[in-house]
Amino acid sequence: MYNWDFYTVMQSFDLFVYGVWTTLLYTIGSIFFGVIIGLAACFARLSRFASLRILARSYQELFRCTPLLVQILWAYYALPMLLGISISNVTAGLLTLSLYVGSFYTEIFRGGINAIDKGQREAAAAIGMSGALAMRRIILPQAVKKMLPAFINQSVIQVKNTSLLYAISVAELTYMTSVVNSETYRPLEAYSLAAVMYFVMLFPLTQVADHFERRMRRSD
């Protein structure tokens, strides 16, 4: 029978807290930049200029069709060789996570906007609104509601994806857990605790997503 000993692991609780904090920072930071990138790429894909559409599409497919871990390693180890500058693990991590999630957000935003009936755009135009005004006042407010469940889902995945930064020694929760493990030789307790901490962070978010999805179905 295995002798559970959380006490030893708990003595390093501050390391877990630090890991959770770092994980949250990378999540929030990459979601923030991801939204900006996603919006820009989304409007590029909806643009009437073919070059912008192709550029945005290429970016999207590049990041959606390669594994995030490879992207992280590439940005940290390969990109500096290419550019001849050193890139910190913080920069490489935040950059890759933002671009990665941005490519998925692009698709979510685009889908939400395209799901709005074209009659809405016409009705806005018919009262003299410009395309930009119609987008801001009529299309986006409706599209955001449609996007919300998918957006939250992707953001939940993003929290978990920060764990891949372990590979470039960013002090997020998974990395810090490995530190605790190497100090205490208690992998079962350490990684179980890490899993619980991820769960506690994410479970409320999934509930919020479900709530919005239910509410959306009701108004349809």
């Binding site: 009936d117 009659g119 016409e122 009705a123 135009a125 018919a126 003299g128 410009s130 009529i138 409706q142």
Partner: peptide, 21 residues
Amino acid sequence: GMGNLRRNVGMVFQHFNLFPH
């Protein structure tokens, strides 16, 4: 321009196209 024209020429559609939000 189209903006100015549409301010002066209103349109009502078959499917209403009211703003649901």
